[in-house]
Design a protein around this nucleic acid. Structure first.
Lengths: 204, 204
DNA sequence: GTCTATATTCCGATAGAC
DNA sequence: GTCTATCGGAATATAGAC
């Protein structure tokens, strides 16, 4: 536990603590004891509020997943012109991850380790519909405003350029010898840099 | 255990089994019993060949990490012209991951969960030296052959575009409804697609 | 609601026969 | 080298007092 424990209800402190511990250690690496310590309460209280470890985990996962992916809908399914859509997507997405830098690797790793569970438990509520975006890309190609490209590949480019740096951060930090402030500055710059890079490549 | 157990020594079968289990479940999620079962041997034998779980893990991690990153050196530190270097990097890197599709998320997740351990245990033998590549990019900019761009950002673009699809695969597969064959075809195409995309953006 | 104490399950590791 | 059996600790979960 860090500070201001009495500022929030026990339940809120548990959620904050659980988020921190799960996100850094993963489901199987997290210890209920660590979460209790971090929240400044007793282990038994975790079971009082959330029945068991799995339920607590699902709560945290759902929150982070919702922040990461369904957020795409608002942008992808909007009526913006393609280039504006790309700019807005990159900027908002990187902004979200600057506030939750551990979310991407945590979420993607848990999906990787239990894809079946993910499909059954976390994917309720529908998936992101890419049809509109794909069609938009296709018609820009037909109109001759952008080069010919497989829309799926282009979407993968966008996601890759925005998300990967946060996943690779610990590795990049040690391998490339990049410190925390440098990293933040690079990510801040990427909000403009990435859309410029993408549009620079596809614009005719 | 799957088949042909008698084709290899116990040690080799253990390594194959451990790789499979560690890579899908991570260090904390992997069970020695599962590895033993997968290898078709007894749990005690794991401790006979490798002293404990951590040592076995380190062996597997080192193998995968070596395959992933030091491989960069041969390309990054070579004397190829920049565009050739980019093409070769993307092609070889994606090829490696097509053969070890789980390696990136496994390696990056373990580094994320224990960055200190990584720096102490796995980073011996030096790091990738990016000076040459950075200088090469800088001089291409000065020569007016490519647009002005922060070399670090460009290198991040390259890594992102090659690695991320493998990390996001389980999520992309369910969210975008992409099957196994489709995914493989997309990755195969990316070996040409990504360098084309990059060069298309930076070439003057 | 919150705690202490304890039950219970699980898992890494070892002992020791063959 | 390979096995069976078991130990001992760790971690989740529950019982029950306050």
């Amino acid at each position: 536990m860090v500070k201001n424990e009495k500022d929030q209800s026990a339940e809120e402190r548990i959620l904050m603590a659980a988020k921190k511990v799960f996100v850094t250690r993963g489901l199987s690496g997290a210890r209920m004891q660590d979460i209790a310590d971090e929240a400044g309460i007793n282990k038994a209280l975790l079971h009082y509020y959330f029945r068991n470890k799995e339920k607590l985990f699902e709560t945290i996962f759902a929150e982070l997943f919702t922040g990461l992916f369904p957020r795409l809908r608002n942008i992808f399914e909007s009526d913006l012109p393609l280039f504006d859509k790309i700019e807005r997507f990159c900027s908002e997405y990187i902004d979200y991850m600057l506030q939750n830098p551990h979310a991407p690797i945590f979420v993607l790793n848990e999906i990787h380790q239990r894809p079946e569970w993910f499909v059954k438990k976390a994917l309720r509520g529908g998936i992101v519909n890419l049809d509109k975006l794909i069609q938009q890309i296709t018609s820009e190609i037909k109109a001759g405003r952008i080069i010919s490209i497989n829309p799926i590949q282009l979407i993968m480019h966008m996601l890759s350029l925005c998300i990967f740096p946060f996943i690779g951060k610990p590795m990049l930090a040690s391998v490339m010898e990049i410190g925390e402030e440098t990293f933040l500055a690079l990510m801040e710059a990427r909000k403009k840099e990435v859309p410029k890079f993408i549009i620079g490549s596809i614009k005719k």
